[in-house]
């Protein structure tokens, strides 16, 4: 396990170094525009997996957490001109509180009822923001980017790197959960909640924790979107597409291991970016649907299920 941890952190450093080098060496801004979106989906899909994969509580409210992240940033910029790190950190705190609230309200429900409750929540929040004039209401709001910080020469490149940092944070946290007793407890309650309780697993506490961490990461991933687009409106910030895409990415990648949602988000995110350029963004939804159906039928455990044909299981960490 020790050696695996070293390998993981080494990988993370190499990844960040590569991303940083890219921002310094590549002149064209487009790869960063597209890459930012993919990285953002990696964070969202990984965060979704904590609750949706490990615990088996399918959250359809990704858009609520994402949108709350966006609008936390908008509010902070509008009210105080807060810098980016403050926007992200505050979004994470707000997201975790929202996660706690949602958890307390909905986690006693099982299966489809929980999922429906999360959709309802997203609608309620979107409606409130739509009526919140200070952050632009339904019409949305324009935002001015502050000057970019060195060593970056464009704001988008900087946001790209920030989102890469969030990927590392999200994956590290999710991996930590997976390899700890919290992860084992979540798996146990996903398999059988009553048996887990009677075996000593504090199921409600673990579910709340999963909801809080998942919510914090999703909102954090949404925060930089305000500056990325220099514009925000409730319709796009709370778009149900986020929920559907993220769910599809996690399921297509596989939710038994944190690498699953990473692969799923890269695979589907890249496909979507490609299609948006070459054909149209409407085709995206279709492709998403077709891929999801294909995987559900042919590879129910996702990409990692395909790769990991004969899983070498060893009770310990993976």
């Amino acid at each position: 396990m020790q050696r695996r941890s070293i390998a993981f952190w080494l990988g993370a450093v190499v990844f960040l170094a590569a991303m940083l080098a890219m921002t310094q060496l590549v002149r064209n801004e487009y790869p960063f525009f597209a890459g930012y979106v993919i990285l953002q989906f990696v964070v969202l899909a990984v965060a979704w997996t904590i609750l949706g994969g490990y615990a088996g509580y399918v959250n359809f409210g990704t858009n609520a957490f994402f949108g709350v992240g966006v609008y936390t940033a908008v509010l902070l910029v509008k009210a105080f001109g807060a810098p980016l790190p403050v926007q992200i950190a505050t979004a994470a705190v707000v997201g975790s509180l929202l996660g706690l609230g949602v958890g307390l309200l909905t986690l006693r429900m099982r299966g489809i009822f929980f999922s429906i409750a999360t959709i309802a929540l997203a609608i309620i929040i979107e409606t409130s923001i739509t009526n919140f004039r200070f952050v632009g209401g339904a019409a949305g709001i324009q935002l001015q980017r502050p000057p970019v910080t060195a060593p970056f020469d464009s704001y988008v490149k900087m946001l790209f790197f920030v989102q890469a940092l969030l990927v590392v944070i999200a994956v590290a946290i999710t991996r930590g959960i997976q390899n700890s007793r919290i992860g084992r407890g979540l798996h146990a309650l996903r398999d059988d909640e009553l048996a887990a309780e009677c075996t000593g697993v504090p199921t409600l506490r673990l579910k709340l924790l999963a909801c809080v961490i998942s919510g914090a990461l999703m909102a954090a991933a949404g925060a930089p979107a305000a500056m990325y687009l220099q514009y925000a409106n409730p319709d796009s910030a709370f778009n149900l597409n986020y929920s559907v895409s993220v769910l599809a990415m996690a399921l297509i990648g596989g939710t038994a291991h944190w690498i699953g949602p990473v692969l799923g988000a890269i695979l589907l995110g890249a496909t979507q970016q490609l299609l948006a350029v070459t054909i149209s963004s409407e085709v995206n939804v279709l492709v998403l649907g077709v891929m999801l159906v294909l995987f559900v039928v042919a590879a129910p455990k996702g990409v990692i299920g395909l790769v990991q044909r004969q899983p070498k299981r060893r009770g310990g960490s993976k």
Binding site: R184, A188, D191, D192, G200, P202, R313, G315
Partner: peptide, 17 residues
């Protein structure tokens, strides 16, 4: 049983908590 787990992992849940 916790169906996605091995026998040992089933017991590990108990011991972990």
């Amino acid at each position: 049983p916790f169906r996605s787990m091995t026998v040992l992992e089933n017991l590990m849940v108990a011991l972990d908590f």
